[in-house]
Nucleic acid binder design. Structure first.
Lengths: 142, 142
DNA sequence: GGCATATCCTACAGTGGCTATAGATATGGA
DNA sequence: TCCATATCTATAGCCACTGTAGGATATGCC
């Protein structure tokens, strides 16, 4: 029987985060001691590891909920899991493209800065006037 | 005199977002009509454009606050603006590295999926067992 | 058994950067 | 004057946690 702290240490999760996952029903309600403390088994450890690893790969909690459901039903087709992973891959690729555009723009801003006073700072100039940008970056939240 | 809606249209911002910026004192309190509606001038339009452009480049609102302050004081040295931009560039580069690792891992997962049942789905296998990963991805929140 | 202390409990507030909603009021044109 | 559209305030919600306060419990040692 594992305490919540042990589970946290073994998976690199904060104790509050585990309780949060329980609250949103991503983790099951575990058994309790007579004093009311949570006690977990190996299955819960595996489930939490799955969640954390998926989070590290950038999956949303909703996507993870679907993936866990698929994982719990071995008879289901793998297609759905594949679809979710492909969607995540696309999102990562799109974010990378956006970041690449930002990187270019920021590098140019920084390079052109002469180091004088802010009255003729290239960094501020570019921020003031979008038309100075060579690359497009129309959406917020890279 | 510009209404909040005009300001929103001209900068690609939602009306609520402008009011939010006012609330957190990123935008100044504008003049009002006798009926209590906000009215803006060109200076506010420029300021909002600066904010939005900076957001598009991924600067945090706190960083933007600093940049605006520098922009308002032309006699100050440009060094600080340069420092903020360089920090932002570093962050973008770090995020790109993380995303590259994720992209690799996700692409591998997806490629290896044979399309059978979830009982032997590579996508789910990898999520279940971190040791199957070739690349490191230790932090959450790319 | 008693005690220290480490861990656990609940409940709630806060983070960033918005976005959405409800219900009331103002504005501008036909 | 009427009406559609825009605006107002206030508040709650989003995601995925994180932090805090103020207690209760569990464990190891003497």
């Amino acid at each position: 029987m594992l305490t919540i702290g042990t589970l946290a240490r073994r998976t690199g999760t904060k104790v509050q985060t585990i309780r949060y996952y329980e609250q949103i029903r991503l983790m099951p309600e575990p058994g309790r001691t007579s004093g009311g403390q949570r006690r977990y088994g190996e299955a819960e450890l595996d489930r939490l590891a799955f969640i954390r690893h998926s989070r590290q790969l950038g999956f949303s909690l909703e996507a993870i909920r679907e993936l866990l459901d698929l994982s719990d039903h071995p008879e289901k087709s793998c297609e759905e899991a594949d679809r979710i992973a492909r969607r995540q891959l696309r999102q990562v690729e799109q974010r990378m493209e956006r970041l690449e555009a930002l990187r270019t723009e920021l590098a140019r801003m920084v390079q052109e800065c002469s180091g004088g006073s802010t009255s003729d700072c290239r960094v501020l100039d570019v921020l003031r006037d979008h038309s100075e940008c060579l690359t497009a970056h129309d959406e917020i939240g890279a």
